[in-house]
Design a protein around this nucleic acid. Structure first.
Lengths: 213, 213
DNA sequence: CCTGGACTGCATCTTTCGATGTACGGCGGT
DNA sequence: ACCGCCGTACATCGAAAGATGCAGTCCAGG
């Protein structure tokens, strides 16, 4: 039995969703929330398997509510909305939603979606998928050389200095932050430049950036 | 009528796919390819609406074939594979695939998938969707300040210099690349540092990185 | 115990950077 | 035509960055 919490502010729509879900033999609606805060609170209390979450809701929007539910690992979240605006889609997915559906979804597909997400799989409305793929494909591929392997050759102190370089700090800045003489900082910089085969702190900074340090 | 090209090296599997597709009234299998190169060639010739593409194929793998078909805008590509390895999924999507299915898909779902993609929508196997979402969510959000607005304040020359800084070049390097005296480079660097309120070329390089210049 | 190596630390010296002053061509306004 | 403004360009000079030599510490192995 899949225990579902329905979060939707418009009571008519909410009633419709509940009706649809109840028609499935293996789905049980354990609660209904009318706004985001209530959704989070009820999720904490009822511990449903899944929250069916609207995005447009008063007091706390669905994306933020999703973020909280996911952060506390209360339940999987299936987001449901009328508009497939990019900010909704990407926002919801970044917030940790396991699925994203539009409200024009057929009753049968909605039930299937709930079952799918409950199985630990993901699901996205076809109309949205293309844009998600496009967005994903546009993501720059992180690649340099064999990063960690080269990083291994650095000592702890050198890595700390490298991290500072990545923030654009000067030798003096680094000296005060790591509590050593500027001359010493220069030594470390010089050493790590040699090990990484770079010719200036600028390149080191860029590398640190790419490595996300 | 949706015109489909089936690319799959194992003839038994290919025959099965064709059989399934033929059972749909609005789908017409216009060709069958046994390897990637053939798939690309036949796509060029037949101009199908959609290519159903296996990943494991001789001569040219499905991902590369997909890349080519998409690059030439020959058709939409629906990728089909036995293994949902990350490199396949992400590779295929980056190559421009409009959909990604596993071979354990039901006949009915396969037909639906073809119809969905033909409508210009996207479709991803539920088992894969979660990982795609996770990967997507992990994507760092590019954000600093009001980047373009600040970039607008730079002159063309200054932007060029900034780009070079992002590559970690020295003033001398930049001078030779942009064909000006080193002294002039310094002027531009100094100016853009002032406009961007930065204190060193290192910070400028980091910024250039973040802006993807 | 001692010896060699790795890590960290500092001082000195050369190179590079960055700020500043200046100059010249193009452009719009009056 | 004149002026001021902007973009581009270069030279000078103090400040920073980087290379190099060397010293103290800690640890593993002999």
């Amino acid at each position: 039995m899949i225990r579902v919490l329905v979060a939707e502010d418009q009571s008519a729509v909410r009633a419709g969703l509940v009706l649809i879900l109840r028609s499935a033999p293996d789905i049980e609606v354990v609660g209904e929330a009318a706004d985001g805060e209530q959704a989070v609170a009820m999720a904490r209390e009822l511990r449903p398997d899944l929250v069916l979450m609207d995005i447009q809701m008063p007091r706390l929007d669905g994306v933020s509510a999703t973020r909280q539910v996911v952060a506390e690992r209360l339940a999987d979240v299936l987001v449901l909305t009328t508009f497939d605006l990019d900010e909704y889609v990407f926002g919801a997915l970044r917030a940790g939603a396991a699925g994203f559906l539009l409200k024009n979804t057929e009753a049968r597909d909605l039930i299937e979606a709930v079952q799918t997400v409950a199985r630990g799989e993901g699901l996205i409305a076809p109309a949205v998928t293309r844009r998600l793929i496009a967005e994903f494909a546009a993501k720059p591929v992180r690649e340099t050389t064999a990063d960690p392997s080269v990083l291994d050759s650095l000592t702890r102190r050198e890595r700390e200095v490298l991290a500072c370089l990545g923030e654009g700090l000067s030798n003096a800045d680094i000296a005060s932050r790591l509590d050593m003489a500027e001359a010493t900082v220069k030594t470390h910089v010089s050493r790590l430049l040699g090990k990484l085969e770079l010719r200036s702190r600028v390149q080191a900074a860029v590398l640190a950036q790419e490595l996300g340090i």
